[in-house]
Amino acid sequence: MTESAIPVGRASRRLLIPRVAMGLGLLLAAVLAGVVIGETPLPPGQVANVLAHKLFGASLLVDPIDAGIIWNYRLPRTLVAAGCGTALALSGLVLQTLVRNALADPYLLGVSAGASTGAVAVTIMGLGAGAIGISAGAFMGAAMAFGLVATLARAAGGGSAQLVLAGIAGSQLFNALTSFFIAKSANAEQARGIMFWLLGNLSGVRWPDVTLALPAACMGLVACLWHARSMDAFSFGAASAASLGVSVRRVTLVLLGAVTLMTAIMVSLVGAIGFVGLVVPHAMRFIAGTRHRALIPATALAGAVFMIAADITSRMMIPGQVVPIGVVTALVGAPGFALIMIRNRGRR
């Protein structure tokens, strides 16, 4: 290490605490906004009283109806949205790094479609005869979908373009299977509920879902941070990573396993939500740079805030009606997708 590098490292460490504090402050502000804003606006003071009463047993006067809205509906919904945004954004970042394709994300590569098929197969078809939960079924579907896409891409030549095309084919296949399962086994009411859920729906989440979504997102964040240096090496290709001493097979299996698990859990809870894993990592590269030690936490934070904002928008877009959150993310993500393609074309 040269002498000139020492002050840079010390300066970076001095900036770490303020950056962490700013990030946590932004996340808390987003969570507060998710609880306060809705068809029935609630003052922040009332929200603070309810949280103090529920969390710390404070003897404060709270309205039972407001307490029910805050504690049983909006807070778990907002926390699941944050966990879902974190997981999907990190999944997109990992896939883009490992396959070195700017258009990679769980939605485009068929992982979300496979997870949806697995979840619907368990729910409607009774796969596993009750021994398999929805999350387990979604995980199996996601793993099958990614395995199929990877096999197709390798058979077609193994390039990045082939991977995206294989992902589109895999998505269409598993979406067709999902539609077939619904048409074959679901009644009209079940079909309507599942189709709304498949577009992304946070209306039904409660505290048990929070205990599943947040640990999954934190697990994925820890796995990514643990392999941040390896992901830096993967940015130059698997061969370069191996030459730098990275255990390519082990790191790939761990990170892809984390992506599959996170995607499966989130799809089983809220349905297939697209474009979060595509747009958020690219936006954060402009802000945090390409070094994954900074890019990973920035992407996780931005994914959580983006999903909370999308959830607020879905509640407020049409008065008296909740728009599927997947519609909101697509309205933002589709233009972002187009910009990414144009930007990549300009680099050729």
Rank of each mutant, 00 (worst) to 15 (best):
G170P: 07
S4K: 00
R347T: 04
E189A: 15
G25Q: 07
A186D: 11
V332E: 11
Q190D: 14
V280M: 12
N201F: 05
V323F: 12
M262H: 00
G274H: 02
A48G: 09
A153Q: 02
C224V: 08
A176G: 15
V205N: 01
T123S: 13
V276Y: 02
P43R: 03
L51G: 02
R154V: 07
R250C: 06
L108Q: 09
A183G: 10
I69C: 10
A169H: 00
G130A: 03
T329A: 09
T211A: 15
A21T: 13
A330V: 09
D311T: 02
V35Q: 01
A89I: 03
I134N: 09
A29W: 12
G277T: 04
G289T: 07
G110I: 08
D66R: 02
V47I: 06
G346A: 10
V270K: 01
V164H: 11
I17Y: 13
L278N: 05
T117I: 04
L295H: 00
A161P: 08
S247W: 01
L55K: 01
L152K: 06
V280L: 11
A186C: 11
P324H: 07
L16P: 12
G57H: 00
V210M: 08
H292Q: 05
T151P: 06
N101V: 04
A102Y: 03
M266D: 10
G57N: 00
A213S: 15
F180R: 02
C224E: 08
L152M: 14
V267Y: 04
S268L: 09
P335N: 02
A302R: 02
M1D: 14
L42V: 15
G83L: 02
A239F: 10
G23Q: 03
V149T: 12
V20T: 11
A113E: 08
L177H: 04
E189Q: 15
S135W: 03
P43S: 08
A272T: 13
S12K: 09
V222K: 01
V327M: 14
A283F: 09
T252A: 06
A81L: 04
A309C: 13
G130M: 06
L199S: 11
V99T: 14
I69V: 14
R347V: 08
L27S: 09
L24P: 12
M219L: 15
Q162H: 12
R343L: 13
I124S: 05
I134G: 10
F139R: 03
V111W: 06
A169F: 00
P215G: 03
L255D: 06
L165V: 14
P281T: 07
L16C: 13
L27M: 14
A302N: 05
Q321A: 12
V254S: 03
M144P: 02
R77D: 14
L214I: 14
A176T: 13
T117Q: 03
A223E: 07
L165S: 11
A176C: 09
L152R: 06
A228F: 00
I37E: 08
A145D: 10
M341C: 14
M22W: 11
R249P: 05
R192N: 15
R348V: 07
L93T: 00
G277S: 02
A213G: 12
I318K: 01
V279P: 06
V251M: 01
P208I: 05
I132L: 12
P319C: 04
A156Q: 00
A58V: 05
T2G: 14
G23K: 02
A241G: 10
D311M: 00
S314K: 01
A186G: 10
V267H: 03
G118D: 08
